[in-house]
């Protein structure tokens, strides 16, 4: 016998609230244990201008990285599928090396060596390049995974009617895979946002660096990290919810 759906919903809600409460209690416990008596978020809010600027920069850096990563990923995908072994090798080497490199190392290399070699010192742009290079291979895999999921007989049909390469991607392949790729794309956006925190090592004023700066002025360390954490969740959680909503809507 199944319960009425209202009752079931209520039960789920209570369970969810209880689970959330467990985490909140844990966080509050830690905060109380480590913070001095003068816990006060207002000290951070005095610098909200800087905080918002940092948040905005994080979003801009992540958005550019996502966009360029998408382009790079598609190029890597096409190169990997190329008939010419040189292109396949270019793509494969890049993908394997990048996937084996921590983003932090990549940020250092891009900023301190590659930027220097080309006499280009804009750490903001170099940071975007580093994140782009880092998520490009994941994007390439995303393209491969979704394009491979298209029935091979559709490719036979495209061959038979003589679709050009551009027409295949523009009219048949991309429209079909966009929906498939969306969850993965949102995931990668989330990687880019979280990854951008590492740019603080080259003093790019994204949100992490902004908070470090505020902390050094106010000594409000606990409050700073707490707000930083919430700020990241404010960006990533809605993204997750949006992805889930879109997936449900189109499934």
């Amino acid at each position: 016998m199944s319960e009425p759906s209202d009752q079931r919903k209520l039960k789920k809600l209570i369970h969810f609230a209880a689970a959330a409460a467990v985490y909140i209690v844990f966080i509050v416990f830690v905060v109380i244990r480590v913070s001095s008596n003068n816990f006060s978020l207002s000290r951070i809010f005095d610098y909200r201008q800087l905080l918002l600027q940092g948040l905005l920069n994080t979003l801009i850096i992540s958005a550019y990285s996502l966009l360029f990563g998408l382009v790079l990923g598609f190029i890597l995908y096409l190169a990997r599928e190329s008939k010419i072994y040189f292109f396949r090798s270019m793509s494969n080497i890049f993908i394997e090396v990048m996937m084996g490199t921590p983003l932090l190392v990549l940020v250092f290399i891009t900023s301190y060596f590659i930027g220097k070699a080309f006499e280009f010192q804009n750490d903001y742009v170099l940071g975007i390049i580093a994140i782009t290079a880092y998520i490009g291979p994941y994007m390439a895999n995303m393209f491969k995974g979704s394009i491979d999921s298209i029935d091979t007989q559709q490719f036979i049909v495209m061959d038979l009617y003589g679709f050009s390469r551009y027409q295949r991607y523009r009219f048949i392949i991309l429209p079909q895979i966009l929906r498939l790729m969306l969850p993965q794309l949102m995931n990668n956006f989330s990687y880019a946002i979280k990854g951008s925190a590492l740019l603080y090592v080259t003093a790019v004023t994204e949100v992490f660096y902004a908070v470090k700066l505020i902390q050094s002025k106010t000594f409000a360390f606990t409050e700073g990290y707490l707000i930083l954490w919430v700020a990241y969740l404010c960006i990533t959680l809605p993204l997750t919810l949006l992805t889930k909503y879109i997936e449900r809507r189109y499934s």
Partner: peptide
């Protein structure tokens, strides 16, 4: 082959329409 294929129509076991 490419020129020849422009003169034929092919129907498969399953419909093979573009699903989107």
């Amino acid at each position: 082959i490419a020129a020849y294929q422009k003169t034929i129509g092919l129907v498969f076991q399953t419909h093979n329409l573009f699903p989107h």
